[in-house]
Amino acid sequence: MKGMTLIVKTISSWVKMLVFLFGIYIILFGHITPGGGFAGGVILACSYVLIMLAFGRDYTEENLSLKLASKLDCTGALLFIAIALVGFMYGGFSFFYNFIQQEYLAGKETAFKLISAGTIPLSNIAIGLKVGASLFLVLLMLSAFRPSDSSEKEN
């Protein structure tokens, strides 16, 4: 895959940043508006799919290598488990304990503010990282099969 025409490349190099930004917005505001980690992560991956369609697979791999993506993937998952395990430190061994909400934000008027809901925005960020990286990996892997297939047919 060499990529598409110049028009598509130019437009998508503008649009990709907007899509990426929108994904970040969806992740960060997941706890007060519809959306969240999964939806935002999918949008993040979509921005890379756009690059992959417009510029070709090799360019995308230079941009975000497979190794880095798989490391981000693991980091996201580990971050999520770490947030869940931090609750153990607040007595009673409670898994997924919303320690920020209960210990630091309790009694404060935080509803509908960006910093509210305790650990939920943090979990959203972890999930967004995980979903974005792993969906990117899946799509990259699936597109990797294509050249060998077509070459087999030609032979």
């Binding site: 999964f38 899946v138 892997m141 699936l142 099969f145 060998s148 297939d149 087999e152």
Partner: peptide, 22 residues
């Protein structure tokens, strides 16, 4: 979300099988 995961795995196994068996 779960079906997304299993669908991705299923499709990749389909592609691999196509590579082997044609």
């Amino acid at each position: 979300v779960i079906s997304l995961g299993s669908l991705a795995l299923m499709i990749s196994i389909c592609i691999r099988t196509y590579e082997r068996y044609g």
